[in-house]
């Protein structure tokens, strides 16, 4: 009885120390990454190549998802709003939901699944096949040549993708609300414009997506860099990237929302 209690306590201890170990590792990794950023920023073509693989290749899924999310929001929103006789507010509801929350958050989740998991697998495989070691032996720092460009590409791509998601979302809501349901076109846009603030809503939304891009980018390169050099290790690392990125995005979103929008309307 006592033995099992001790076991439980030490298992609990192990659970936390191993996680804190990993956090420490991540912090040291982030520090090294930060140092290598200056070199990577001097070679932007390397980053743009990764923007192609991460950002451009995610464009279609983000745009289509945005359109559908906007349409669903419009159908659901209209259902509730017309009970209170304020169906013209549909544009406001949809636009604020998209610009403040769904745009940055859903884009980051899609990005984690579409692009970051691939980055983790790629870096993990490069490590397993000694490509990073070979680079290091050729006196080329893999941190600034391989890791940093992929990290920067996530930060760079995310705000554009979030803006595209929100835009197609608003267009989707407009198609449902104005074209299919028949809400007045003028009221739809004017209510939206009267209630969406560029600085508070749009800029904060983009700021969120930059923070998410940083988090998702860091997690994906970290998990790839420290993936065990086996098939199973890379599979585990890829899963971890998606799970940890998604949870981090949602947690960060809560913190940022409280900081940005508390005390407003």
């Amino acid at each position: 009885m006592r033995a099992s209690f001790v076991q439980l306590i030490s298992a609990l201890g192990h659970f936390f120390t191993s996680r804190i170990d990993r956090l420490g590792l991540a912090a040291r990794f982030a520090g090294a990454l930060l140092v290598s950023l200056s070199i990577a920023l001097g070679r932007l073509p390397l980053m743009f190549r990764e923007v192609y693989f991460s950002g451009v290749r995610s464009l279609s899924i983000v745009a289509v998802s945005g359109l559908f999310v906007g349409m669903v929001l419009a159908v659901q929103g209209y259902e509730v709003l017309q009970r209170y006789g304020s169906a013209e507010s549909l544009g406001v509801i949809v636009a604020l939901s998209l610009v403040r929350e769904l745009g940055p958050v859903v884009t980051a989740l899609l990005f984690a699944g579409r692009a970051s998991s691939a980055v983790t697998a790629e870096i993990g495989l490069m490590r397993a096949t000694e490509q990073l070691a070979a680079m290091d032996m050729m006196a080329v720092d893999p941190m600034s040549r391989v890791v940093a460009p992929r990290f920067l590409a996530a930060i760079f791509s995310m705000p554009f993708l979030a803006a595209i998601f929100s835009t197609t979302g608003v267009i989707g809501a407009w198609i449902i609300g104005v074209k299919l349901i028949g809400i007045d076109d003028g009221a739809f846009w004017s209510q939206m414009q009267a209630n969406v603030d560029v600085r508070i809503d749009v800029l904060n939304g983009l700021l969120k997506s930059i923070v998410f891009g940083t988090a998702v980018g860091l997690i994906s390169v970290f998990e790839g860099y420290f993936a065990a050099p086996t098939a199973e290790g890379i599979a585990t690392a890829t899963t971890r990237t998606v799970v940890i990125s998604s949870l981090s995005v949602l947690l960060l979103d809560l913190l940022l929302t409280v900081m940005m929008f508390r005390g407003l309307s």
Binding site: V196, V198, V202
Partner: peptide, 12 residues
């Protein structure tokens, strides 16, 4: 373009 849309058409 999407950012401009958000600034000018969605927001004012």
């Amino acid at each position: 373009l999407a950012m401009a849309f958000m600034a000018l058409k969605v927001g004012n």
